[in-house]
Amino acid sequence: MDARIKLPLTLAFILTCSLTPFGSWWVYILLLALVNSAAILSELGLYFLHKRALLALPFVLAAFPLIFTIPGNPLFTVGPGWFTLTASQQGLARFASITAKSWISLQVAILLAATTTFPDLLLGLRALHLPRLLVAVIGLMWRYLFVMVDEAARLLRARASRSGARDLPGKKVGGQLVWRARVTGGMAGNLFLRSFERSERIYAAMTARGYDGEVRSLPHPPLAQRDWLVLGIGLLVLLFLLLIG
């Protein structure tokens, strides 16, 4: 599927998911089914999808208090005598809804990222009328992302290999916290400086190839009728789900 279709569809999906009211369990299930079947169809596999989806788990804590703060039919009480929290059915429903929505949205985002090559993703962003300059910056950033991550990894390795101490009595190993933070800062500064000078070299290479500041790119093939059809159907399905919710 062309990225220019995938990206809006993904956005629409997440939008639908978020707009669906709390507690509309059937809609959630349908949305979940949609995502997971798409995952299977695209040969991504459910295992991969759900492995990555576990990432969202920690943030769920932010909504946890809702169980106790939304008033409604009480379910159970916890806490020592002087301080009790009453869980309500509505609160639990709200919490579960938020968790479900978040989890489902996360899956479709994973799906998008895993099935779209980066250049195609940029294409999709351009099609959404993202400013050319920003897309160019992101593109260059991607190109050098792994280079810089490698440099950061090597800095960490260099520090690790110098972070050793024999078991000598009376010595506080590891240095002070502030010192450790400052050393980390030095590493960051090193990274930034090298990237700055790298950017100068890149700029020189770009001008040697005729770069003049204007970001141009080849025109992209227009979307086929079939693509528009897919987009249309997709949006209709989502609209339907929204209405029954």
């Binding site: 290999s161 110098r162 050793g164 101490a165 078991d167």
Partner: peptide, 11 residues
């Protein structure tokens, strides 16, 4: 930790 102190690694 002890080993790292004994091995001087130069990249």
């Amino acid at each position: 930790s002890s080993i790292r102190a004994m091995v001087g690694m130069v990249f």
